[in-house]
Nucleic acid binder design. Structure first.
Lengths: 161, 161
DNA sequence: ACGCCTCGCTTGCAAAACGCAAGTCAGAAG
DNA sequence: CTTCTGACTTGCGTTTTGCAAGCGAGGCGT
């Protein structure tokens, strides 16, 4: 019996089915940092080669990476992020930001994000798409959406304070 | 032999060591939605009870949740997010947003985020903390930070285009 | 021409993690 | 005093992972 997917009508669960396995997000981190070849990924992620093969295939299968031939004779490839893959950088940035705040020692974060356009080291700020104000964790409500299941609809607006 | 942690000087890897296991992010999702009791979490996440116990203990151990007695006789508890736990909502929002865009069917997303302050359904926009402009995936560079290892420092600015 | 190297995997095996069902234990509730 | 509920714990069989070794296609050195 294979390990079941989470099998939930929830965008978080559905996303985790694609990228939630051990090593997958580290692989994506490195691909988005420009580390795109099998051997380099093996070294920088630390994942075993059979696992790396499996994860790369899954990511290609789901349109998050593309396997691109670099040269023929000898055959060499690289794994490039698709548009969808590149959009996962928001997830990685959120993980990095939390880690910077809560797991970094006194020496500070190992890497910083620089906004190319303005040239400054920055942190991603999560703002409301409608009014532009910062979106704090306690200033949002989750409402059932158009694709809600009856259970989600029945739960109504969350969290109930 | 226990499964090794990722053991990397990287905020993403260090964060994933705390919350990267199967079920952990779904548990956090539900706790942040207000589902805070063992039995409810078992039902809404679908995780087996031994796994749920293990994950909750790990989260409490790392200061992401607190185990709060609700009533004595009979003993009942709830798991509440700490400040650090609440900040993980940015990670969950990023996962949800990606899932909404890339895994939702024609019926649309199952849940939507409403910004309480302005009252509108919204999406979190990732903006530059310095200049306020939207932070697109291809408009950032990753530089070595103060806590960089020699290897990270040697890699320099990434990605090299 | 022959061995040796590199890259990108695949295979085999033991160890660890997981899923499920059942059991435990303290305290109501009937 | 039996049953029920919440929050776990235990046992057992399956699945996944980590590690080491091997493979095969194509250079490269001599």
């Amino acid at each position: 019996m294979p390990l079941r997917p989470y099998d939930q009508t929830c965008s978080i669960a559905r996303t985790l089915e694609l990228i939630g396995e051990r090593w997958t997000l580290l692989i994506l981190r490195d691909v988005l940092l420009g580390n795109r070849r099998f051997e380099d990924l093996q070294r920088t992620t630390g994942a075993a080669s059979n696992i790396l093969t499996d994860r790369l295939n899954t990511l290609v299968e789901h349109g998050i990476l593309r396997r691109v031939p670099l040269e023929e004779r000898p055959d060499r490839f690289e794994y490039r992020p698709t548009r969808a893959g590149a959009e996962l950088s928001h997830v990685l940035q959120a993980l990095m930001q939390w880690g910077d705040r809560h797991t970094a020692g006194p020496e500070g974060p190992p890497r910083v994000i620089v906004h190319t356009a303005c040239g400054h080291a920055t942190e991603p700020v999560h703002a409301c798409a409608h009014c532009g104000e910062p979106l704090e964790p306690d200033e949002v409500e989750i409402h059932p959406g158009p694709g809600a299941t009856p259970e989600i609809a029945a739960a109504g607006v969350l969290p109930r304070r």
